[in-house]
């Protein structure tokens, strides 16, 4: 009897939490996305599909395409940096490996805005990088490193890199060394070993990392704002504008729901490659 009561008491919090703080907000913006906005910020309770049709306007398609391109490039660069990095680290001694991985996480325990600000100081026209390159006579004119797409990508790669490194490292370090040796014994070259043995066994890690880089990248409006000069509109900026300046909540909700569906499709794909949900989120 007491046991039953205990069970009730400890199961209630998670149910209340999941329903009130996760499901309710999502259902509400789902409903909102089918309503209409009046021209100055109010919401009219009329069911319509107008908000979803509006997404197919060229103006907004462009925003979707831009965001996905930036997110894609960011993800690819993260893979190109993180893959060899994790591979090389995994060849070190176990103790060194732990230390090196701790050093990867350390900078990310400070606020991401602060680090983004550091990049502004570095990338400005008269910032540290340009000043050094000019003084060394490597360049004649300052490079445009920010207030453009390059700036946004540098900021995104920097902020999201650990989310690629962590899952990749954990899947690379799990590869049985005997497998690699066996492959070499069988006469496979290092290239063949890499593509036939190492890559296949890290597919889930790779997918996990890509997911954790690609999805946040779409929403980080502050990086586009600070390093992009407000010239490139990403989906995050568009949603933010609909909620905080253009006063069109239903349209903002429709974009969010679209984004949510895309996220769910990507997660489904991840699960299909054998990924576990518990491994997402940097675990």
């Amino acid at each position: 009897m007491k046991d039953k009561l205990f069970k009730k008491i400890i199961t209630i919090p998670v149910i209340v939490y999941a329903l009130v703080l996760i499901l309710l907000p999502l259902i509400y913006i789902f409903i909102l996305s089918f309503l209409k906005s009046d021209s100055y910020g109010g919401v009219i309770n009329v069911f319509n599909l107008g908000n979803y049709l509006k997404i197919f306007d060229m103006v907004y398609i462009k925003v979707f395409v831009q965001s996905f391109l930036i997110a894609l490039v960011t993800t690819l660069i993260c893979i190109l940096i993180a893959y060899p990095f994790c591979l090389f680290i995994s060849q070190k001694k176990k103790k060194t490996q732990t230390l090196l991985m701790a050093l990867v996480i350390l900078p990310f325990l400070t606020n991401s805005l602060i680090r983004t600000y550091g990049w502004i100081v570095l990338l400005r026209k008269e910032g540290v990088i340009n000043t050094i390159l000019l003084n060394l006579n490597i360049i004649d004119n300052p490079l445009s490193l920010m207030y453009n797409n390059l700036g946004i990508i540098i900021g995104m790669v920097y902020t999201l890199l650990p989310f690629m490194i962590l899952p990749l490292y954990s899947s690379i370090s799990k590869i049985d060394n005997r497998l690699i040796e066996a492959s070499k014994d069988l006469g496979a070259g290092s290239m063949a070993t890499f593509f036939k043995v190492i890559v296949p066994s890290t597919v889930t890690g790779l997918f996990n990392g890509s997911l954790m880089v690609f999805i946040p990248c779409i929403g980080y409006f502050f990086i586009a704002d600070l390093l992009g000069g407000g010239k490139l509109m990403l989906l995050g900026n568009l949603i933010k504008n609909q909620f905080l300046t253009a006063r069109n909540w239903p349209f903002g909700a429709a974009i969010s729901i679209t984004l949510l569906i895309i996220t769910f499709v990507l997660v489904k794909l991840y699960k299909k490659t054998g990924g576990k949900m518990d491994d997402l989120g940097g675990f």
Partner: peptide, 12 residues
């Protein structure tokens, strides 16, 4: 930073 942002903040 803009009148529109102010309006959105006040009305929401």
């Amino acid at each position: 930073s803009s009148n529109e942002e102010l309006l959105a903040k006040i009305s929401s």
